[in-house]
């Protein structure tokens, strides 16, 4: 078991990673690194290979080929000592229904063998009612279970948080609180690796994003750099009720030249968002299954 990790190595480094389930190639040779203290959004539609990649990072799935390392230690050999530095929230969260919320957090806290200094702060930030802590998890709503799951990932103040679709089941207010929690955690120097197919929440908190589609990384960059290549979207409305949308990265003059003017009644021009970038990179204009 290796518990000593390098402080200057990338928090996450993935090199030519491949994961195959029988005949299905879920991850096809991806490469990326996440630096310490960074919030990294891992974006892609359902079935793109996000969860498979995350499972490799936690040694829950052995890769078919390639290497995944955390803080300079290969995941495969890092063992429990390496996982002690991680906090994990799975996409399909299944807590033990016979335990109460408090027992769940206590049990996992003991498995980590670490104090849980952030438990109260996280539950308070999410607005989880203290009175519900002694109710069985089976009686919780989906959102409450997700809150306990988030507390479980954050409670021991890990150096690296791996969160798979963390906002699933959260209402908009709690989602905002959660994103605030991510920002606060990153400000303390912890790294956050967060998968999602909800673009808006990732572009609000992530320093960089990696876009994965059909098992391949189609782009890794800062949000600003990705947007820079696709600076604007023009939405055109015509007399007959038609609406057209043009994504353009050329000069303003070129854009105006491209616009068919006959019957045009209105033009709305706005900066490209991450969804536009993703659309252009992977699926033409259909968005590749991503939600705003």
């Amino acid at each position: 078991m290796i518990s000593e990790t390098s402080t200057c190595a990338p928090a996450i480094h993935v090199h030519e990673l491949e994961v195959t389930y029988g005949a299905v190639q879920a991850v096809r040779g991806i490469d990326f690194s996440v630096q310490p203290g960074e919030v990294f959004g891992f974006l892609g539609p359902n079935g793109a290979g996000k969860t498979s990649t995350i499972r490799v990072l936690l040694d829950l799935q052995r890769p078919t080929a390639g290497i995944a390392s955390i803080h300079g230690v290969e995941v495969r050999t890092g063992g429990g000592g390496l996982r002690r530095e991680l906090g994990f929230l799975p996409g399909d969260l299944d807590l033990f229904p016979s335990l109460t919320g408090r027992e769940t957090l206590d049990f996992f806290g003991r498995l980590y063998g670490l104090p849980t200094p952030k438990r109260s702060a996280v539950l308070d930030a999410l607005g989880f009612p203290e009175s519900a802590m002694d109710r069985k998890v089976a009686e919780y709503s989906t959102g409450m279970r997700q809150m306990v799951g988030i507390a479980l990932a954050f409670q021991h103040a890990p150096r690296l948080l791996i969160l798979d679709e963390p906002t699933t089941g959260l209402d908009p207010l709690v989602r905002e609180s959660f994103l605030g929690l991510v920002r606060e955690t990153a400000a303390t120097g912890a790294t956050v690796f967060m998968s999602s197919h909800v673009l808006s929440e990732v572009q609000d908190v992530a320093d960089r994003v990696g876009l994965i589609h059909e098992g391949r990384m189609v782009g890794v960059d800062t949000i600003e750099n990705l947007r820079r290549g696709f600076p604007r979207r023009a939405i055109l409305r015509y007399e007959d009720g038609r609406t057209e949308s043009i994504l353009d990265s050329g000069s303003p003059a070129d854009l105006l030249d491209r616009i068919p003017r006959e019957g045009l009644v209105d033009i709305e021009i706005r900066p490209a968002d991450l969804k536009d970038v993703f659309r252009s990179m992977v699926e033409g204009e259909d968005g590749g299954g991503l939600r705003e």
């Binding site: 829950l60 000592g81 996982r83 991680l86 994990f88 799975p90 498995l111 479980l152």
Partner: peptide, 13 residues
């Protein structure tokens, strides 16, 4: 059920 992922993501070998 999915609970094994949570257990094995901890330091438990």
């Amino acid at each position: 059920r999915g609970g094994l992922d949570l257990l094995l993501a901890t330091p438990l070998e």
